[in-house]
Design a binder for these strands. Structure first.
Lengths: 225, 225
DNA sequence: TATATTTGCGTATAAACTACACATAATGAG
DNA sequence: CTCATTATGTGTAGTTTATACGCAAATATA
């Protein structure tokens, strides 16, 4: 075999959820190729770091945010996906609350910004395809795994969880049945606190029971809403 | 950044099913490292071939079998998984009927052989971990996707499908309910042919209705047995 | 010809899901 | 202060889906 000259990079698709909006974190590229265009944060893997370390490092360098859990999404390796030569990229994805982070662009990025997933700019490389894959995974995920912990405040009214699901699923769900189902899963602790946002009856606050929540996630519970 | 010196390889976890046995295709390594030990077929990606082409080529070179569909499984990239230096490997997996192929070892492989997944030899590299991931994926898959087309003869009695599922799931299932469920999915065409193997009432033969079968697979139908 | 073996089918019960409406606790306008 | 408005919180009946279970039919073999 002739000498292999393939470069390896990682990309981080980070989804944010806030009050009925799903957004994704993009950076504006500082250098060519695609200088000035928007892209998914990412970069080359260093020789002695794990893939997970690489993606967390690149994400931090380019956007200033640190995520403790990024899940491997897919590896993209078409021969001509990067004009600089053969680059194979391992994409990861994660979920956060955007308001919990302050963005700071730095290395390789001129700017970092949240974009609503229904209002995306033109993307560099094959990042449109990567994003599409990530969105499909996200939508698939919520049908077989409980989701929420990563995307809601620590304490939240039930309506927040409901809104999260209607947003992610893109359709209405029955409020009463949804509540029964979630309560039945036993992943929520009801607190002795109420919150009132504007008019209407004040809502009880809930929080995730971490132990049971992560256990259920690990089991990959089937969870058809 | 200092120059990246990471090599990229692909591995193919190929599962076979035959009469109540699940097996996996392994090769005996011809060269160091791990010379003489068993390993999952695979090898380095060439500069201008896609990842899919690479994995199909390597599988063919080392075992003589050609598979038209290998699904990407996971990318393994721990810094010290290969004693030769940093090698990141993209693992794929596929399903076949072993009796439909004749094995021929060649490049890099001294021998290719099917192993029952309950009776595996010591494996090279981190291939034990790769195989574990593949088995988990396989077991997860059958709960939300119809499986069978790739693993059964073109025409088969219903009991073959049932046995396939009990084997893959590792537990008994109710014969009558299973049949009702599968028939309800509408993926099988009942043929006007019977087969008799040994004693007992001869069984009607079925075949998959390809169009509907692949449509259901694409939809990722939830399919709790 | 009787026995063993495998296929093919139906029904009753339990569990899960779906649809649906009204009382309660607050805010805000007049 | 009162009434209209808004959001929360809960129960039940009807339907669908899943589970449990037994017996007759068609062949091979002793």
């Amino acid at each position: 075999m002739s000498k292999q000259s393939i470069k390896l990079s990682v990309d981080a698709v980070v989804f944010g959820y806030e009050e009925g909006n799903i957004s994704v974190l993009l950076i504006k590229r500082k250098y060519d190729p695609f200088k000035g265009q928007w892209a998914i944060p990412g970069g080359f893997v260093e020789n002695n770091e794990s893939l997970e370390d690489a993606v967390e490092r690149e994400l931090f360098e380019e956007t200033g945010i640190k995520i403790n859990y990024l899940e491997q999404l897919y590896t993209f390796g078409k021969p001509n996906r990067d004009p600089r030569g053969r680059v194979v990229s391992i994409a990861y994805f994660g979920l956060v609350r955007p308001n919990a982070f302050k963005l700071y662009a730095s290395t390789d990025a001129e700017q970092a910004q949240w974009f609503n997933i229904n209002d995306l700019p033109k993307l560099s490389f094959d990042h449109k395809e990567i994003l599409k894959t990530a969105i499909e995974r996200l939508q698939g995920k919520i049908t077989y795994e409980p989701i929420g912990f990563e995307l809601l405040d620590k304490k939240f009214p039930f309506s927040d969880l409901e809104k999260l699901y209607t947003t992610l699923l893109g359709r209405e769900i029955d409020r009463r049945n949804f509540r029964k189902k979630i309560v039945g899963l036993n992943v929520l602790d009801e607190l002795d606190e109420k919150v009132s946002k504007g008019s209407g009856r004040p809502a009880n606050l809930f929080q995730f029971n971490q132990k049971r929540y992560f256990q259920l996630k690990k089991e990959g519970i089937i969870f058809e809403i």
